[in-house]
Design a protein around this nucleic acid. Structure first.
Lengths: 345, 345
DNA sequence: CTGCCATACTAAAACGTTTCCGCAAAGCAC
DNA sequence: GTGCTTTGCGGAAACGTTTTAGTATGGCAG
């Protein structure tokens, strides 16, 4: 006989009053409320979530679905843990807890999400690593679960999403390289199936064309987003007939493998070949040469995600201005040594 | 009126029978069971977790608590996502779901865990990054929540834990370096407050003494487990009067920063200084020189964790032999170029 | 004194599920 | 046919909480 009932009996008060006292509801004498809170603290009482959820139809839990598939793991790194900090700083203000839902490798993400949603263990969801067509979005729309997608998608009509400014980054990188005299600029990217691969390369193509440089498919090197992929990208690049003078990496860890392969071939990055990475991690600065790449605050992104999500939840929307449903998250250039030279005319 | 009631009405059967059919209980005609399962599939019915948990007193959820504090994030990398794969492969066999509980930076881990436990959203816990004295362990013991600690601790009597074989790694690293003629071996480690820092350095000291080499506190360089820390370790090392001929890094990402600092000083790792890292990540192989370090399968560790945890849960213990309560997880040496030279006598 | 309102509380219903208990029907042995 | 067991199902209690509806008390206006 534990739970609120015991607490009520201990205080010689009805359980209804105890519940109202604990939940800051009206119709409770201030004196009584103090006694209840003190007793709860003393006895270590915390409301059972199942009972509360069952009654209220709400769990006070926000789910962050992450896919731990091999490809994703390799390049997700501490991305999620970084974002989590920002998310929680906002969610905790509303007594919402964040739980990370890692989709098993051998389960279809769509099925996994369906199961989680049906079980009603979360009030709202953040899904990440969205695909160009992503069943999960239709699922959430149909189930009327508030959600934000981290990554744009063509599915599901006009849902809310936040995505990184791939266009801006690609344009900035290309502009920068072109201004230093580069004309043959390669890019190492994951396959088109992955949203990032498709959008980034497309933006790169457009940026080139704006400068009057013809897009050369041979310069698009499709590799995995890892050190291994960087090494392979270097390898592929060296086999080209006319070698590029610069390369853009879609993931900064690729630089480690790329550097290694270049070194093996006697090519010095930052002198013989310009390299620009995509996302800055602390490690970019410590590579040799240090990597020119793009910086963003994972924490701020988390905050934005949380506020956007809350705006879609009826119970919390009032506090959050109905901002744009779709946000492009900017990144800032962090110049390094890896592209710090100009080509001779 | 959704839920099992609607399903029962649709089938014109009592809800009790429907429930038994869905949960593989006896006392249900095979014919009826088929009908129920078909209808559930058709209508997309999945039991509400709150209702079920409330009645059963069990949630079928295993929590993996992770701390996203700055220090931890920097060196956790994809550790958790890697382990998660192995965990889920075992847990899913028992229809248990794994949720990751990220403790907010600004909340005391002990308070956070207390809250989560009291709310009863998990049946069992895995806690990580244990400290030498860790209140969380006492809390879980007292609350009688089955749990496994990833990392040893002096708290809480004889609870179940799994930890990496720091002693073995330190001994192997020291033996290897000594056999190549090194006598002055530095070590870059986090502070003693962190379990890893304390145990690893202690094992290193013992290994040295076994070889009759006096322990020199000046060779213990306390830095953060990051690229930045590696850079700083290199810096500190260069200021020593008698410079070491080898260095052991407690975290392999340190190598990136260390290499950079060495390069700035004109010292070539793998020729002028032997370097051994702790945990292998794919990137170790792609550094230049490639890093000698220690390898382990995160997935296998996850499997071991899951099986150990299930053995502590009364409802599942029968399937899992009562193995050792405490496990030391071995790592395997992965030789690289960074220590591939011997000192002249 | 009567009527009305505000305050602070109690009692009980409700959330969706599982599980205990009882019961009818059917099968079987005699 | 009688007694007993097995099979399959229905009814209802129970889990812990929140919330609604109802009630006693006291203050206050008339």
């Amino acid at each position: 006989m534990k739970g609120i009932r015991q607490l009520a009996k201990h205080l010689d008060i009805s359980i209804g009053t105890v519940s109202r006292a604990l939940n800051d509801r009206p119709d409770v004498n201030e004196e009584t409320r103090k006694r209840v809170l003190a007793a709860a603290e003393e006895l270590g009482y915390v409301a059972n979530q199942s009972g509360r959820s069952l009654r209220q139809g709400t769990t006070n839990v926000i789910g962050l679905m992450i896919e731990s598939s091999k490809e994703t793991v390799e390049n997700s790194d501490n991305f999620f843990l970084g974002v989590t900090g920002g998310l929680q700083s906002v969610l905790s203000r509303h007594k919402l807890d964040l739980l990370m839902l890692p989709c098993p490798n051998d389960e279809d993400p769509h099925e996994y999400l369906k199961r989680m949603v049906a079980r009603r263990i979360v009030d709202a969801m953040i899904i990440s690593a969205t695909q160009r067509v992503d069943q999960r979005i239709d699922l959430l729309v149909k189930a009327k679960i508030p959600f934000v997608a981290l990554g744009r998608s063509t599915s599901g009509g006009n849902h809310t999403w936040i995505d990184l400014d791939f266009e801006g980054v690609a344009a900035c990188a290309v502009d920068r390289l072109v201004s230093k005299g580069h004309r043959r600029i390669a890019i190492a990217a994951p396959s088109n199936d992955i949203n990032l691969g498709y959008i980034f390369v497309d933006a790169y193509r457009q940026s080139l064309e704006r400068h009057g440089i013809a897009f050369d498919p041979a310069l698009v090197i499709r590799v995995k987003s890892s050190e291994q992929g960087g090494y392979q990208a270097g390898h592929e690049m060296l086999r080209l007939d006319t070698k590029p003078t610069a390369i853009i990496l879609i993931y900064e860890l690729m630089a480690i493998g790329l550097y290694r392969r270049l070194n093996e071939a006697g090519i010095v990055p930052g002198r013989d070949l310009a390299v620009i990475g995509f996302r800055e991690e602390p490690r970019g600065k410590f590579l040799q040469p240090s990597l020119t790449c793009f910086r963003m605050s994972l924490r701020d992104l988390g905050v934005e995600l949380a506020e956007t999500l809350l705006a879609t939840m009826p119970a919390y929307a009032e506090h959050y201005p109905k901002g744009a449903r779709n946000t492009i998250w900017p990144l800032e250039l962090a110049p390094g040594e890896s592209d710090a030279f100009s080509l001779d005319a």
